[in-house]
Amino acid sequence: MNKIQVITSINHEEVEFLCEPQETLLDVLRDTLGRTGTKEGCATGDCGACSVLVDDRLVCSCLVLAAETGGREITTIEGIATEEGLHPIQQKFLDHAALQCGVCTPGLIIATKSLLDRHPDPDETTIRYWLAGNLCRCTGYDKIVRAVQDVARDLAGPA
């Protein structure tokens, strides 16, 4: 098996890895690079637990080949908080009790970031449809949607 060398950037840090042609970005993140914050719920693009940003585009990392990611900028849940602390989305998820088991949470936070980057002032319907690819079985989504609304309100408020 010929391995493919890939040089990419994960959370603004240059990363080099070897992968097999059929390995997905999710496989490499979790198994090769030890970035296990990105979760696997189905490996078929139906649950969103493995959501990451590739060049700021929201994708399921289980549906991206690792070999395709050379030269890209990948954002995972490990890259959301900063030296200053939690990202506002992370904080609001905690404040609103928007997680119960928490396994869908990394994917939802990434998807929310992507939503608010593009639509800083989304209505409830926009939020629900944007997040429709992120299954949560614990919360019934209510507190998740409220957390997102609250982040958006803060973003819209006086600087």
Binding site: T36, E40, L86, L94, L99, G102, T105
Partner: peptide, 15 residues
């Protein structure tokens, strides 16, 4: 246990 769960640190079964 919240911060670890929103930052990806929390270790689940396959982690």
């Amino acid at each position: 246990d919240g911060v670890d769960k929103v930052t990806g640190r929390a270790q689940y079964g396959a982690d």
